[in-house]
Amino acid sequence: MRSPAAGVPDPTSAALWGLPLWLWVVLGGIGLFGVFQVYYWVGHRLGSRLYASRLGRRLGQDNIRRVENAVRRWGALAVYGCFWVPGLRHTLPWTAGVLRISYPWYVVASALGCLTWVPVTSFGLYSMIWGWLRLAARSPALAAGVAVVVVAAVAVLVLRRRRRRRREAERRPEDTLTTA
Rank of each mutant, 00 (worst) to 15 (best):
M1P: 13
R2M: 10
A5I: 02
A5N: 00
A6L: 12
G7Q: 03
V8K: 08
V8N: 11
V8L: 12
D10S: 11
L16M: 13
P20Y: 02
L21W: 15
L21F: 15
L21P: 04
V25I: 01
V26S: 05
G28I: 06
G29V: 05
I30L: 15
G31N: 04
G31L: 10
L32K: 04
G34Q: 13
G34K: 12
V35Q: 14
Y40G: 06
G43N: 08
G43I: 04
L46C: 02
S48Q: 11
R49C: 03
R49I: 00
L50I: 00
A52T: 10
S53R: 02
S53T: 01
G56C: 00
R57W: 00
L59M: 14
D62L: 01
N63Y: 08
N63D: 10
V67Y: 01
N69A: 10
A70S: 09
R72P: 02
R73Q: 11
G75I: 08
L77T: 14
V79S: 13
V79F: 05
C82H: 15
W84E: 15
P86V: 12
P86F: 13
P86H: 10
G87M: 04
H90F: 08
H90W: 05
L92Q: 07
A96H: 11
A96P: 08
G97V: 01
R100Q: 14
R100P: 11
R100C: 09
I101W: 13
V107G: 00
V108E: 04
A109Y: 08
L112E: 10
T116F: 05
V118F: 06
T121I: 13
F123K: 03
Y126L: 14
Y126D: 03
M128Y: 02
G131C: 13
R138W: 07
R138V: 01
S139G: 15
P140Y: 06
G145S: 07
A147H: 07
V149M: 12
V149P: 00
V150C: 10
V151C: 09
A155V: 12
A155F: 10
V156T: 11
L157H: 07
R160H: 07
R161Q: 06
R163H: 10
R164P: 02
R164N: 08
R165W: 09
R166N: 04
E168S: 07
R171V: 00
P173H: 11
E174G: 13
E174T: 09
T176Y: 04
T178K: 00
T179H: 11
T179F: 15
A180V: 01
